[in-house]
Amino acid sequence: MILERTLAAVFGANCYVLAAGPDRSALVVDPGAGATRGALALLRSNRLTLGAVLLTHAHADHVWDAQRLIDAAHAEGLLSSDDAVTVPVYVPEPDRYRLEDPDATTGIRASGMGFAEMAGSPWLAPTDLRAFPAEGFTRAFEIVPGVGLQAVAAPGHSEGSSMFFLNARLGDNQLLFEAEVLDDPSAIEERDYLVALSGDVIFKGSVGRTDLPGGDQVQMWATLRFLASAIAPETVLLPGHGAVTTMEHEHHGNPYLAEARIRGGDRRA
């Protein structure tokens, strides 16, 4: 399986490219502002075409280049469908409304600038926006051929924040070294890993903020408490910002998970 990452220029948001193998249709996850160039390079270098875009949630720093990437891929002849110029963009239903104006609904400002000013580009709404299918929250949904994802609702950072789990057969993938899953390059064989696209729910040593519009700290504690008990320790977490990690590492090194085990959604806490 192909699993690679590039970074968006604004806030360093992680953008991931997944495909069953070379010469296949690819899924691009969370193309933030400035991610188009790197994502296209990954498509070209792996002989991939763009088949779908997935947004783990709809904050501006994770969605800004979704349509821009599609338009650029179309211009280069890198769309998976020869007879269409649109690519489906999937987002969890509770966050779908944010795609009307993610600058306003995210509420991020820095140095007096809104997100569009920081990005240096206008918002382009996706032409084929779809809610991630409800069936994908109960069983794997094949979002592009050979890439099946099962979603778990994880609200708190935003109403629709979700984590997306997949089985990935990987060898000497750089992201596995970063997560400290691999440490001996001379003895690497491909094997199956449980991988989770964790968006802004869980980071290495931290979690997503809850002070933006739609955030809810108590709901976040409940989400984290559930995830801490439900996710297998060996799961590789691909976060929306920062380094790749594992659930085992976060059990030992993430103080926010420890706090969530105590508070766990109790609004009196």
Rank of each mutant, 00 (worst) to 15 (best):
S121T: 14
G112Y: 06
A134F: 00
R109Y: 06
P102A: 11
S80L: 06
L129R: 08
P94W: 00
E93Y: 09
V91I: 15
A110V: 11
L124T: 06
P92T: 08
S121Y: 03
R109I: 11
T105S: 15
D128I: 07
R130K: 15
D101P: 01
L129A: 02
D128A: 09
E117V: 10
P92Y: 03
T106W: 03
G112I: 06
G112Q: 05
A104Y: 04
F132V: 07
P122H: 14
E93W: 07
T86G: 00
A125K: 14
E93L: 14
V89Y: 03
D82W: 07
W123M: 06
R96E: 14
R98G: 01
A125C: 10
F115S: 04
G114H: 03
T86A: 04
Y97R: 11
A125Q: 14
A131K: 00
S81H: 10
F115R: 04
A84I: 07
A119C: 12
M113S: 13
E100A: 15
S81T: 11
G107Y: 05
L99N: 07
V85H: 13
L99Y: 08
P88M: 09
A134K: 10
A110G: 00
W123E: 00
R130G: 05
T86V: 14
D103W: 00
A116Y: 00
T86K: 10
L78M: 15
P122S: 13
P102R: 00
S111K: 10
R98T: 07
A119D: 07
R98D: 01
G120C: 12
V91D: 04
Y90E: 03
W123C: 04
D101H: 10
D95P: 02
D95W: 03
P122C: 10
G107A: 15
T106I: 12
M118K: 04
F115Q: 02
V89L: 05
P133E: 08
D82R: 13
A125N: 10
D128L: 14
I108N: 02
V87A: 01
A131M: 01
E93T: 11
V89H: 01
D95V: 12
S81D: 15
D101I: 04
A116R: 11
A119T: 09
L79Q: 02
T86M: 10
A125W: 11
E93V: 12
V91N: 00
S80I: 07
D95Q: 09
S111A: 13
Y90W: 13
F115V: 06
A125I: 09
G120K: 12
S111I: 06
